[in-house]
Every structure is written in C-alpha cells, then in structure tokens.
Amino acid sequence: MKGMKKVIGRPKYLKEVPNHYCPGCGHSIIHRLLAEVIEELDIRDRAICIPPCGCAVLAYYYIDVDMVEAAHGRGTAVATGMKRCLPDRVVFTYQGDGDLAAIGTAELIHSANRGESITTIFVNNGVYGMTGGQMAPTTMVGQKTTTTPKGRNSVTDGPPLKMCEFLSPLDGTAFLARTSVHSPKHIQKTKKAIRQAFQTQMNDEGFSMVEILSQCPSNWKLSSVDSCRWIEEGMIPQFPLGVVKQRQTEPS
C-alpha cells in the first residue's frame, strides 16, 4: 500500500505451507523464530536440524534447512554424531519435554557434559502433546493430564524437572536460558536467546540450550488466551525465566 512500509513478513526460510499445529500452539511461533534467526545469522546453508518425535516431528515441512529425524529421545546423540563429522556446521536439536527430559535424559546430560558444540531447542509445554495429553516430566504438581486424572502428585510422580538448572553445574554447558512465547515481549526475548545459543555454538564455546515455555491449548483444555495466562501464572513461578547460565569466555 502506498506510503506504508513493510515491517514484517514471512521469514525467508519458513516454507510457504500451512502448518498442522493446533490454534494457539507455541510450536509455530518457535519455528518462525528459528527461521528468522537462521536468516539473520546467514547460516541456512550449513544449519542441520534434528527434529524430535512428537508434534514437531514434521518440522522439516516448515523450516527450510537440512534435517535428520531422530528416534525418541536420541536427538543429542544423533547431533553429536553429525557435529563430530561436520564441525563447521550449525547442528541443533528440537525436542519436547518427554523427548528431552524423560526418555532422552541420559543422551542430553552426556552431550551437555561433553560440551558438544550443538544447540538444543527445548520446547516445554508440560504435557505430552502428540500422544494425547499424558503427564510429562515437566507437568506441574496438581496439573491434570490423561495419566494424572487427579493432578500430578509430587509424592508418587515426583516434582517437575527443571532442566536448565539441572544442566547448569556441568562444565560442558556454555549457554542455558529459559524463555517463553506467551506474549510478544517474551517472543522477542526467546528470539534473542535462540540467537545467542547459535552464536555460542558458532564460537565453539560448548553446549547451548534454550528452554521455551510454550502453550498447548488442546491438551491443557484451555483457550489460547487462558493458555498464555497459565504460562504466566502457573508455569513461570515454577520455571523462572532468564539466562540460567552464560559461561564467560576469555576473549582470545
């Protein structure tokens, strides 16, 4: 339109296809942020994504970079194998809470501890999305899921796992941040964190991870708006946002 300046558009590396995510889901926002960061850092030619098992398994339909699908939980092991062979590529896993914090915990901890120069995008929505709303390791105490119909019981199920804090003491981790995508302000912070994580990898500083609190209206049985409110009021008190660890490296 005349006199108007285009301030936002589809990112170059987000494919022009409708996505399959539910209305109000955080994945599509995170995909977009990844595409933007990949464009801004100009790494599309050398970025490799390891998509997970879970709702985001189809990420290869949306983000325009090379991808190798991993078995459930094994993303960081696959990324390790790839990055060790191709040290100049930017290799990142995209994992949900079950993938990363339950079945893939061992792979995650050891990849992080080895300081693998990879990045993990950890989407934490506190519930198993694709399998239909079962309890995740990050489900809140009291939160109802299909396998905790009376709410998660911290005595029998344990409390939710805080993965950033968990990884923080490991020498191999260089950048750990927890962000959220429930408001425009937080979306911008998430983008900044993703960018920093990739830069950490490109500087070969060690393992980097961004944990993103993300809404799942379908399985939370909440409206999109209420989902955003649940993150603010229900999740953030348990999962405080911010940079959990940023290793200071000596300027060389």
Binding site: I50, V68, R74, V78, T80, G81, K83, R84, L86, A106
Partner: peptide, 24 residues
C-alpha cells in the same frame, strides 16, 4: 577420525546414525 566412548549402547548407535547421515 573420531573416537567417542558413548554413555550407552543406545547413545552409541544413535551417534552412528548421526555420523552415517553425514555420509561418513
């Protein structure tokens, strides 16, 4: 060359998978 002692056979075979994916 790359030698890596994995944390488990599970991780090891998935590292094989990743390396193989790169054509190595």
């Amino acid at each position: 060359t790359v030698f890596l002692q994995s944390e488990s056979e599970l991780a090891g075979i998935n590292m094989v998978y990743g390396a193989s994916a790169t054509g190595t």
